[in-house]
């Protein structure tokens, strides 16, 4: 009941955002948060629910980004370009998944890192195709049903709708039998295999779904910036997305959204005051992994509770854990 009410309030706040948010600059930041939240939702399917940590997801995000920019620049219509980009994305994701799902754990991480670097290398060096360091410009944002997305408010609503679809689809996926078996392959892969589940296929489907939303986020990102450069596919971008997932709390539905908000706000706020965003990113990464591996929200709750107990003189109950 309380959760339903909270969800309704959050939804109303998001829907009315252009009314209570002062100015296009902040609304654009909210759009950015939603775009990265979609990305983090997709990555979290693998990191949180499949237990497979990918360091190459910026590659998928970037492939969709490049594909749509390239198709539009080549003269395709916006709808054709978007559908074509999704087709390219799904093909890339399938190849990515087949290669990386040969192993799990550290091996998976290394293969995804390597494939991510290959995709980055293609974007950076294959100048005939990608324009190299100069990137590709996107002439205009699409006009779905004749509505122009050129301004902040319509673009925000467009992003919000896609975000809500992503959130709903991920929620349905996780609650479905397939989602339950995915969690099973995370916790007990051998037992799942012995029970007759096709562990590889379950992981493969999760990977495709994860890649799909990462790529959709990439599409929106391309529309948002109307520009794509190799930096989008860099290891730093993959690490940033991973930070969103684990800072908010991996394996929870809303954690990655909180994480995306945290990272985007910090990036924008911090870069107004200090130049050293990457240092801060690394430091937060290290601090979260060391001190609150379960994520910022549950982690600070736990630390706060322990501090409260200590202040009241109760011996720490969780010390043995």
């Amino acid at each position: 009941m309380i959760r339903a009410a909270a969800a309704a309030v959050a939804l109303c706040a998001l829907a009315a955002a252009p009314l209570w948010i002062p100015g296009g600059y902040y609304l654009n930041i909210l759009s950015q948060i939603l775009i990265y939240a979609i990305f983090a939702l997709g990555l979290n399917l693998l990191v949180g629910y499949a237990g497979l940590v990918s360091l190459g997801h910026a590659g998928l995000f970037g492939v969709a980004c490049y594909a749509v920019a390239w198709l539009v620049a080549a003269g395709a219509g916006q709808l054709v370009a978007a559908l074509g980009a999704l087709a390219v994305l799904l093909a890339t994701t399938a190849a990515f998944a087949v290669l990386s799902l040969r192993s799990a754990g550290i091996g998976f991480l290394m293969i995804t890192l390597a494939i991510g670097q290959i995709l980055w290398g293609m974007a950076y060096r294959w100048i005939d195709l990608t324009g190299g360091d100069n990137g590709i410009n996107l002439a205009a944002r699409p006009q779905p049903f004749g509505i122009s997305l050129a301004f902040a408010t319509p673009f925000y609503y467009f992003t919000l709708i896609v975000f809500l679809v992503a959130l709903a689809s991920v929620a349905v996926f996780i609650a479905s039998p397939l989602g339950a078996s995915l969690k099973g392959t995370r916790d007990q892969p051998r037992r799942m295999s012995a029970l007759g589940y096709n562990v590889w296929l379950i992981r493969f489907l999760a990977f495709l779904f994860s890649g799909l939303w990462s790529g959709v986020a990439g599409l929106l990102f391309c529309y948002y910036n109307q520009f794509v450069s190799p930096n989008v596919l860099s290891l730093g971008s993959s690490a940033e997305a991973l930070l969103m997932v684990i800072s908010g709390g991996s394996g929870t539905l809303l954690g990655p959204i909180a994480g995306a908000a945290l990272v985007v706000v910090m990036k924008n706020v911090a870069s107004a005051y200090i130049e050293r965003w990457n240092f801060l990113l690394g430091a937060i990464f290290v601090a979260i992994v060391l001190f609150m591996p379960e994520g910022l929200v549950p982690g600070s709750a736990r630390l706060g509770r322990r501090l409260w107990l200590r202040l009241r003189g109760v011996p720490a109950a969780g010390g043995a854990r």
Binding site: G105, L109, A239, I246, N278, G282, A283, V286
Partner: peptide, 19 residues
């Protein structure tokens, strides 16, 4: 915790690069 260790080394690499 091997995965956590890898993530720490990743975070450190960002810090060292910026430093």
């Amino acid at each position: 915790q091997e995965l956590a260790q890898v993530l720490v080394t990743l975070g450190l690499s960002f810090m060292i690069a910026d430093l």
